[in-house]
Design a protein around this nucleic acid. Structure first.
Length: 528
DNA sequence: AACTACTTCAACCGCACGTAC
DNA sequence: CGTACGTGCGGTTGAAGTAGT
């Protein structure tokens, strides 16, 4: 929410119709003619490009309004022909859609609208246009700007982006999905699932994790170790351009993303850590790497910096950092011991690679993982899909437990290449080996896996939640109805003592954290 | 008052999809 | 089938506004 004075000023400005002042003041000459050049605001003049850019003058607005009145919306490229307006069709459309069309709401978002945005974002991710469809009179741009502003504020405040109830709702929804009650045939042809009034397509076309590789620096800077959960905390990170199946090799590496992520070479050169180090979900990864509770050792990123390096005091991890520590690859104890120094690459790398490289069980799976990212739901769906598609979770488990020695060393760059297939095969082979050994020595693979695992600290929300979400079969958390509690723990981890107390207090059952035990910051569902 | 840092938001850009030809 | 065009979407940019010093 916009702070009082600022908002009131803005509202006043808008109410008085002065919003154009900033433009008209600079281009007051435009009021006479839309084609009057005033230099400063017409950065790319139509003289050079035939088309004017920059702020619209009121005269131009009037021309466009007249045009739409006469010809209706659409055919925007014809505007220039019919009106002589030196604006491209896209610009006309944008101006109309965002500012000129009737029934547009101006002014600050109402509380209801804000709540709806949060809810929608939790389900849809950065799908502004779809969100706008649920907010009459609001534009995608407006929502997007609001959200970006909001998350920045909340990140600064160290608060979660989503109120607990939203997360719980989403989780419950996910459970429905997991249970197969929200799943149909070919999603591509069944349209968006309607859940209440919300399009929940997010569930079905959002599992392309890599695409959401945050401008890593941003997400990491805020302490999120798993971009998959960026939307839980810092969806500021571009959710990449819409993935439309054309991104092949490394779908997540959209241009924008690439620019902000450490380059593959960077990983190679500065951190010869291998992906296999991370090719294990990091939920219960080495304690040393966890930024929780009193173990605020920062999560490492491949280049040797920490997630919080220079950005967030490690002694006070952001809420989001904790909250976002969702299912990720974990280290086996052996793995961890070997890797206390090396920093695991962003978990998303691994997960992405895993997802995208996993031999699909069918086209549906392929589709499932081929679309763009969304929000909190992604991981839930991922889990569900993996569970659904792997009869005994073996592959999943493999990825969750395989040590480097099992899988061999796979570099990040390899992960980002087709060579990951080989790595994946290695993982599978290791799993097969484990199963085979089970036949030989009678030790069930799961038990063996347990033996290889570090003792999990169930007071740590990352461990707890990751375990719960990823696979109860991992043997860490047996209760299945505690997702909400897990989330509560997660959300409740507001840096430090509160969280620790709460977690310990719930030791009788890791899944028994009451909302009332939430630290105040967590109970504060929404920051105004 | 001047300066700086930060925030907001309108507009732009590039990409992808759908459709007509 | 391939291409061009129109359109929509999401991320980014940068000017203007605001707050703090």
């Amino acid at each position: 929410m916009i702070s009082g004075s600022l908002m009131s000023k803005r509202l006043l400005k808008r109410a008085a119709g002065l919003k154009e002042m900033s433009y008209t003041s600079a281009e007051s000459n435009h009021s006479e003619s839309p084609f009057t050049d005033n230099g400063s605001d017409c950065r790319n003049r139509w003289e050079g490009s035939d088309l004017k850019k920059g702020p619209w003058s009121s005269a131009e607005d009037n021309i466009l309004i007249d045009y739409v009145k006469k010809h209706g919306e659409g055919n925007w490229n014809a505007v220039q022909k019919h009106t002589g307006l030196f604006r491209c069709g896209k610009s006309c459309r944008l101006r109309w859609a965002n500012h000129l069309r009737p029934n547009l709401k101006k002014g600050a978002f109402s509380l209801e609208e804000e709540q709806l945005i949060v809810e929608l974002h939790a389900k849809m991710g950065n799908r502004w246009a779809r969100m706008a469809a649920h907010l009459p009179g609001r534009t995608d741009n407006e929502i997007k700007n609001y959200w970006n502003t909001r998350i920045k504020r909340r990140q600064r405040a160290g608060l979660p982006l989503y109120p607990p109830e939203t997360c719980v709702e989403v989780l419950e929804w996910s459970q429905e999905y997991t249970n197969g009650r929200i799943f149909g045939g070919d999603r591509r042809h069944q349209g968006y699932l309607q859940l209440g009034s919300c399009e929940s397509n997010v569930f079905f076309d959002s599992l392309n994790i890599v695409t959401d590789m945050p401008p890593a620096c941003k997400i990491l800077g805020y302490g999120a170790s798993s971009p998959r959960y960026e939307h839980l905390m810092s969806p500021i990170m571009p959710s990449s351009k819409r993935l439309r199946g054309s991104e092949s090799l490394y779908p997540g590496c959209s241009s924008t993303t690439k620019d902000e992520l450490p380059s593959i070479e960077h990983f190679h050169n500065t951190a010869p850590h291998k992906i296999s180090k991370v090719c294990s979900f990091s939920g219960p990864r080495g304690v040393d790497h966890l930024p929780y509770g009193n173990q605020h050792s920062p999560v490492m990123i491949p280049d040797g910096h920490t997630l919080t390096d220079g950005l967030v005091p490690t002694s006070s991890p952001s809420f989001g950092a904790v909250k976002l520590e969702l299912p990720s690859f974990q280290y086996s104890e052996a793995t961890f011991d070997q890797r206390k120094k090396p920093a695991p690459p962003p978990h998303s790398d691994i997960l992405d690679a895993y997802i995208q490289s996993s031999p699909p069980t069918g086209r549906e799976e392929s589709d499932c993982f081929s679309n763009r990212d969304t929000g909190l739901l992604d991981m839930l769906l991922l889990e569900a899909k993996i569970r659904n598609n792997s009869t005994d979770n073996s592959l999943y488990k493999t990825c969750a437990s395989t040590t480097p020695s099992d899988a061999g060393e796979v570099s990040v760059s390899q992960i980002k290449s087709e060579e990951f297939d080989d790595s994946f095969k290695s993982l599978v082979h290791s799993e097969i080996s484990m199963s085979t050994q089970h036949v030989a020595d009678g030790v069930p693979p799961r038990q063996r896996e347990k033996e290889r695992k570090p003792v999990l600290d169930v007071t740590r929300p990352d461990v707890w939640l990751a375990s719960s979400w990823l696979d109860h079969g991992l043997g860490i958390v047996k209760e299945t109805g505690s997702v909400s509690d897990a989330l509560a723990v997660l959300l409740g981890d507001d840096m430090g003592d509160d969280y620790m107390q709460m977690s310990v207090g719930a030791s009788s059952g890791v899944g028994s954290c009451a909302w009332t035990n939430m630290p105040p910051v967590c109970q504060m569902a929404e920051l105004p």
